[in-house]
Design a protein around this nucleic acid. Structure first.
Lengths: 248, 248
DNA sequence: ACAAAAGTGTTCCTCTTACACCCATGA
DNA sequence: TCATGGGTGTAAGAGGAACACTTTTGT
């Protein structure tokens, strides 16, 4: 049986951030990149799994390395196990980069949501990474474009079903910011009256006494996400379309 | 770096079937099982991934081996990558069973839905496998109980969101059978009038001219699932709770 | 004064839920 | 004729969608 040949397991992370206008993803430029080859320059941050590490822990490690952040929202996307997903020059690049001799690399994709504050942007740019608008990305190294697409699909679904949007916003945010975020990620226009009604009725937002300052219009009130209220609501009633009630 | 030590990647499958009353899962009895050890006897079917195989293909292979069926509904559950998920006696058993020398096994869980017809039951029992009511399972080998729990959680969600229930029923089925299945899996009671209304309104069921025979009550009409109508509906309008409309 | 975004209610309609009886068949 | 499950309709309420104007601030 040849099932123990040189195969390795890696994680790749699509790290999303929101700058108030569009959804961005963190890309890193490959080291050891030779411009004369046909390899794409940009890739998602990733790493090989270490000996005593779970996959989620590997993803957390990659995240901290890439962003300097420890507690980030992290979710598994999918496993990419096509034997041919990396081969030829790409495989050579990987082995050179990691000092390995793999014939095959199975990777597990994760996506992460981070708050794009000054500190984080400074950290990532100091590391030579870039925040790129997801709309504008047409190609990435290896099958990373495919991983990114899977991440976006999942992110859209998650945004509609659980309060992950807050992971992309500062602690204090306006309802309009939240709405803009939903609109940008989902690519739809949202009626602001219905949105406010729905989001406020959920009871998951707590108003603060603070308002925007220095804006050339009526200053908006800041809210914070009430995670406790959300968890309580979930515990009391799980609900989702179709036959909404289940055991597990 | 010690990232290329003996680690292997396996798949394990929770194969579900419905006997008209309760949800069952296919379990196999371990070979090389020594009764004096403390290892649990029953496990989910599984295998190591082969060299030229994707993970889904490995799962398909396991499925065919276990059930004799080729085209089955198959969905990834999760990855189980805790370095300690198998160790000690369990790890020894695995290495003996597969002829490997792994220090660590990461496994990918899949769940499958099969139609429990006579042929399939005959095949599986001939192989020494058992269909066990999921309700009654308290322990399984390794972390398979945990994998099974994750499978059930996912199955419940899927049942509420897409027409996977039909994978568990014969091609021709009565609406009552469908309702019983939903009730059994979700563990809820469902009002038959509302259920019929909703399910028929969806347009995904085609009535046949056939009815039950030999039953001591009004014979029920048989229906078949209209997959084409379902796909068309999905294409026209994706919908799910909260903000129902998205791009990807 | 004007530009720019915040914030606010109502109506209509669809979908969900709760609920009880007659029908067709085999024993 | 009785036991068994199949099959049917309606009314009330909740939730979603569409829609336009006033308010507050900076310039």
């Amino acid at each position: 049986m040849s099932i123990q040949m040189n195969q390795s397991l890696s994680v790749d992370c699509a790290v999303f951030g929101f700058d108030g206008r569009t959804l961005k993803v963190l890309l890193i430029e490959r080291r050891y990149y030779a411009p004369d080859t046909q390899l794409d320059r940009l890739k998602l941050p990733g790493a090989m799994i270490l000996e005593n590490e779970t996959l989620p822990n590997a993803a957390i490690r990659v995240l901290e390395e890439a962003t300097g952040l420890r507690k980030v929202y992290l979710k598994q996307i999918d496993i990419f196990s096509d034997p041919a997903r990396v081969s030829g020059e790409e495989l050579k690049w990987i082995n050179r980069h990691h000092g390995t001799h793999s014939e095959r690399v199975v990777t597990v994709g994760y996506y992460a949501l981070v708050k794009l504050d000054d500190r984080t942007v400074a950290y990532t740019t100091a590391k030579g990474a870039q925040w790129v608008a997801v709309e504008s990305i047409v190609r990435l190294a290896m099958d990373h474009k495919q991983i990114l697409s899977a991440a976006l699909t999942l992110l859209c679904r998650e945004m509609c079903q659980s309060p992950v949007a807050f992971e992309l916003l500062p602690r204090k945010f306006t309802i309009r910011q939240l709405q803009t975020l939903y609109g940008a990620v989902l690519g739809i226009e949202i009626d602001n009256r219905n949105f406010r009604k729905k989001i406020l009725a959920s009871g998951f937002l707590c108003p603060t006494s603070e308002h925007e300052q220095g804006v050339a219009h009526k200053p908006a009130q800041y809210y914070v996400f009430n995670r406790a209220a959300y968890k309580k609501a979930v515990k009391e009633k799980l609900r989702l379309g179709f036959i909404d009630n289940w055991r597990y």
